[in-house]
Nucleic acid binder design. Structure first.
Length: 1022
RNA sequence: GCCCGGGUGGUGAAAUGGUAGACACGAGGGACUUAAAAUCCCUUGGCCCGCAAGGGCUGUGCGGGUUCAAGUCCCGCCCCGGGCACCA
């Protein structure tokens, strides 16, 4: 290792830039420094973490990425940099910090790519991961790569499958509010059978009602029946679920993949279909998932999103007896107090009673409506709220209180998946019911005092009930209680808490996911023995469904266990990510997903950083699995992450150009016009945004259009100089809005002044048509801030920035951009500032001793051991204070500012004192680790700066002797007066009033009031 | 429609109810240099008065309010971004 004093002694081959530097003062050589320290960290295993129970732990986790083919762009590292700063800071503070990284490597894009190219997804995934790794390494993260996990690795998904089996082997005991082993349920059935009123009755999407059975019944059931019953209780269970089935693709599509009833790629029709699906009974945990939120240090918006998603509502279940058939329509309502305002009942089109109750003569009409309504996706039904549609079934049910007949309608504003799939319609008290009633001319009864039901429903919950009946005159809350009591007395209903949360579909008809460790005997699903795990993905000839619509796994040669067929669907993307945080604790364990010792030591994630788009998906399943593993005694905490921070999205600045396509006629020598066929000679014209907008507006005047066309003719003629034919007419070839189009231009073709590089633009678009400008050049593109994405040609790759400025500059800049949680556009304009700061900081250690901020030309260290001066100490301690406090509250942009202030001030002071610079190197290390290591080494330390103790700030250096008070009159600052710190309020007031300038302002009038806030302000009220 | 964020200079932004615009970019001017790079210094919210020193008015999306004092707290709006579920 070279010594810090040996700048001149370095061999030219080792540092080829030495000579260049001799003639320049580009002293801070980021490339050399960063390369050196990357290699050094890897060699020394600087970021290796041991499970060491003797030390306090801190667990910092990033949401792991899906390794897509596009690689990282500058938006990805934002959260990683923030978490890396915290991880490094906590290390300096003496914590044993777990800061791992891995890959969520199962997923659709790899499979899509495999279908197109025939390449195995494992292969492309491998390539993508290598690329990600290289890019991550370039940024200098302190990840312990020995703990890397990949969800698609059999040694990882073995345990995903194992957890699945635990869920399969569990049921939820609502009395004890926890999951228990199926064996306990079996002994219970053996002893007492089961009744629907038992507390182990379950929420969720159980389709058929499960009837009561006695212990003797249970013992007499055959194996199939027993297993079928158990499906009603298992937390991982096979049931029927609605899916988006695409017959053309032979596969099930996610909601995202369906647009307007057709598949987004390819445009094939999609229908809603019921299919056997593995599901997760997350609904059992609804109340606990809701309760747990209060104690979490997560952003309010995420917690609120989860609360809404879980959607707890209190109300009543009400039964309306059918008039012409046996049975009831059950509805859930939050407003049983409005029962006397019911004028009809509406069923969802999916409701099973629709078919049963509709009389023959209305059948065709009703079923026609049901078919169209059912096939609309929920998103569609959601989109046009204003359109009312429905149909009368022709039958009635009986009002439980009045005994009157209530007509039964079908309407698609009622959703099959929520509540009971039926509502009691109270048009006087519910706006959607009101809309429906008004549209179909159904009666509307006022339910509350003072409501004007001619215009809208009255949904107030602080009103008094006015509808005729025993609830009249009562306040809403009292009426609710009373109504429920009456319903219960009549056996026509009961109190009910309803959750919106639905059970999670857990099967995918795909190849690239974890195989589900289940085999079928006699059509009954059985758990694969643990000893068979991992159940590895089989080789298949194609990654497509089979001809008869089975998932790709059905193509495998021998996809069976002891002669019984294995499950062919795979797990969804969220399986691996629901528990991966536990694997990092003990990633190589072959006998368990993680050892109890490791889990006891690392416990919950202390800080979790990731995007807010996972608010209701990943973050809910993540909590669900944690609670489940806790219930079954595998872990001793039931929330995965104490604190969650959502980094904002980095948007890209796209560059837009506006293009015109022309159609041109030519004049031959005989003055005949004919269409010019040689498109290659017709220019493509770039116009300004103003002209683009003018052309697209409907109100474009013919005169202006004529002027534009004249100009286009001139351009075209010019382009045709030397051609045999003269240009005749020039017209825009498109029609209406198509006359002009806007295009994304690759941002690398546009300079800082937004000028388009026409030569490159032409080349990159390989257009044969010449490009001409409508106005005199250069062509200015119009910037637009939008999501950073490849298709918008606005992605900025961190690699380019790193090679130009270095990783430390990138890290600082991304933090300097603004608060971590805010979305902001990526704009490299400011990056020079952070780069200059690092150079200034570097120069403090290599001063030439003359010009402030100027480095020695030989780049030799200039640090002295002299005692620092008072102002120097003040800068140091003010910086330490601010930076420490800012890291604690994750305000990284302001800490970077403080470092800049320190570098500027120490530069002016020409401070080169070790006692000042050394603590600053440690404080800067979490932000800019490479330069900090290099300077630390120059300060003659042989160990890594990452292990140095965090420097403490000392308030004594920040004490001021005096304070310059802003003196304001009626809140407006007018002057400054300096007073010693120790002066009392009264003394300050007296001295202020004695001041001649203040007296002049007062003009002889005595002030009404004088407010003195020590060390803040003086306000004189006149 | 509902829920959650957010609106401050040319730009990214800062500001425990207490001097609005720190820090940085950009822009303009200057020093050093043969030149460039690098570095340093000055100016930079708007409007107005003044030769100048300096001074005044105004200003944090809009309209009110509380307060000695409001970017910050309260009420009512507008706009932008994100999320969602016509949720009975």
């Amino acid at each position: 290792m070279r010594r810090s004093s040996g700048g001149e002694g370095r061999a030219a081959s080792e540092r080829p830039s030495t000579f260049r530097r001799a003639s320049s003062s580009m002293a801070y050589e980021h490339k050399d420094i960063e390369q050196k320290w990357r290699a050094e960290w890897a060699k020394r295993k600087t970021y290796r973490v041991e499970n060491d129970p003797s030390r306090p732990k801190y667990y910092v986790l990033d949401m792991f990425p899906y390794p897509s083919g596009a690689g990282l762009h500058v938006g990805h590292p934002l959260g990683y940099i923030a978490s890396d700063i915290v991880a490094r800071y906590k290390r300096h503070c003496g914590f044993n910090v777990l800061h791992p990284m891995g890959y969520d490597s199962f997923g659709l894009p790899a499979e899509q790519y495999a279908i197109q190219t025939g390449q195995h997804p494992a292969k492309t995934t491998e390539v993508n991961i290598a690329r990600y790794r290289e890019q991550l390494d370039n940024i200098g993260f302190s990840f312990d790569w020995d703990r890397e996990v990949r969800t698609s690795d059999p040694s990882f998904y073995k345990w995903t499958q194992w957890i699945f089996l635990q869920l399969f082997d569990s049921w939820y005991d609502h009395e004890a509010q926890k999951a228990k082993a199926i064996s306990e349920l079996l002994s219970r059935f053996d002893a007492q059978g089961w009744h629907p009123a038992d507390a182990c009755a379950l929420t969720g999407d159980v389709e058929e009602e499960l009837g009561a059975f006695t212990a003797d019944d249970w013992k007499a059931f055959d194996e199939r029946t027993k297993q079928r019953i158990l499906q009603h209780f298992r937390l991982a269970y096979l049931s029927e679920a609605w899916v988006n089935w695409c017959p053309a693709l032979g596969t099930v599509l996610a909601n995202d993949e369906v647009k307007d009833g057709v598949s987004e790629r390819g445009g094939h029709p999609v229908e809603r279909k019921r299919m056997p699906q593995w599901s997760m009974r997350i609904t059992a945990y609804a109340q606990r998932l809701l309760n747990g939120l209060d104690a979490l240090d997560w952003s309010e918006s995420i917690k609120e999103a989860q609360r809404n998603w879980i959607g707890r509502s209190e109300g009543a279940l009400v039964k309306f007896r059918l008039k012409d058939a046996a049975g009831d329509i059950e509805v859930f309502t939050t407003r049983p107090d409005t029962l006397f305002g019911v004028t009809f009942v509406t069923l969802a089109p999916e409701h099973e009673l629709v078919e049963v109750i509709t009389p023959a003569e209305r059948r065709d009409e009703v079923m026609a409506y049901v078919t169209t309504a059912k096939n609309r996706s929920e998103r569609e039904r959601m989109a046009d709220v204003k359109k009312v549609s429905g149909v009368f079934t022709g039958t009635y049910c009986i009002h439980p209180f009045t005994g009157q007949e209530v007509p039964i309608w079908v309407g698609d504003y009622v959703l099959g998946g929520y509540g009971t799939g039926a509502v009691m319609a109270v048009p006087g008290g519910d706006q959607r019911d009101w809309n429906f009633a008004t549209h179909f001319g159904l009666p509307i009864i006022a339910v509350t005092e003072g409501a004007d039901i001619s215009k809208e429903a009255d949904e107030r919950r602080d009103a008094t009930i006015s509808s005729e009946g025993f609830l009249k005159g009562q306040k809403v809350p009292d009426a609710i209680t009373r109504a429920i009591a009456e319903l219960e007395k009549l056996g026509a209903g009961e109190r009910r808490i309803n959750f919106r949360l639905r059970d999670a579909a857990f099967g995918r008809q795909r190849y690239w996911g974890e195989p589900i460790p289940i085999y079928y005997k006699d059509g009954v699903p059985y758990a694969l023995p643990e000893s068979e795990l991992p159940l590895k993905l089989p080789e298949v000839d194609k990654f497509l469904p089979t001809e008869d619509g089975e998932p790709p796994l059905a193509r495998a040669a021998d996809w069976s266990y002891e002669g019984y067929p294995l499950e062919t669907t795979t797990m969804p993307g969220w399986a691996g990510s629901s528990w991966y945080f536990l694997r990092y604790m003990d990633p190589k364990n072959e006998g368990r997903f993680a050892s109890p010792e490791a889990i006891n030591y690392w416990q919950q994630v202390d800080l979790y950083v990731g995007g807010s788009e996972h608010a209701t998906g990943h973050l809910l399943y993540f909590r669900f699995w944690t609670k489940f593993l806790h219930d079954r005694g595998w872990i001793n905490f039931d929330e995965p992450a104490k604190k969650l921070v959502n980094q904002g999205m980095i948007q890209g600045v796209s560059m837009i150009a506006y293009r015109l396509f022309l159609s041109v006629t030519a004049m031959t020598s005989g003055d005949d016009e004919r269409e010019l066929l040689d498109l290659g000679t017709i220019p493509e014209v770039l116009v300004s945004r103003e002209i683009y907008e003018a052309l697209r507006s409907d109100s474009l005047s013919p005169i202006v259009l004529g002027q534009i066309e004249d100009r286009l003719k001139a351009i075209t003629s010019e382009a045709h100089q030397g051609q045999p034919n003269r240009v005749g007419n020039v017209r825009l070839s498109g029609h209406g809005q198509g006359k002009a189009i806007h295009t994304h231009v690759d941002i690398s073709l546009v300079n800082e002044r937004r000028e388009l590089n026409l030569v490159e633009f032409q080349k990159q678009n390989s257009r044969s048509r010449p490009i001409r400008l409508f106005d005199a050049g250069p062509y200015l593109c119009v910037p637009e801030v939008e999501k950073m994405s490849k298709s918008k040609l606005n992605v900025v790759n961190p690699d380019d920035i790193i090679s130009k400025y270095g990783a430390d500059t990138l890290r600082l800049y991304e933090m300097f951009l603004g608060p971590i949680e805010q979305s902001k556009p990526w704009d490299t304009n400011g990056i020079e500032g952070t780069f200059r700061f690092l150079r200034k900081f570097w120069n403090l250690f290599h001063q030439d001793g003359e010009t402030p901020g100027q480095a020695r030309s030989d780049n030799a260290p200039s640090v002295s051991d002299e005692a620092p001066t008072k102002p120097e100490l003040k800068v140091l301690h003010a910086t330490l204070k601010k930076v420490t406090e800012d890291i604690e509250r994750m305000s990284f942009n302001t800490s970077v500012s403080q470092f800049m202030i320190a570098a500027n001030e120490l530069g002016s002071l020409k401070c080169n004192k070790r006692a000042v610079l050394e603590p600053l190197v440690i404080a800067l290390a979490p932000f800019a680790p490479h330069i900090a290591e290099e300077l630390w080494e120059e300060l003659e330390h042989s160990d890594s700066v990452t292990g140095a103790a965090w420097p403490q700030w000392d308030a004594q250096h920040l004490v001021e002797d005096s304070f310059s008070y802003p003196i304001s009159f009626n809140g407006k600052t007018r002057m400054q007066l300096e007073f010693p710190i120790g002066l009392s309020k009264e003394e300050v007031e007296a001295q202020v009033l004695a001041n001649p300038e203040v007296q002049a302002k007062l003009g002889g009038q005595p002030p009404k009031k004088v407010i003195v806030v020590p060390k803040r302000i003086v306000n004189i009220v006149v």
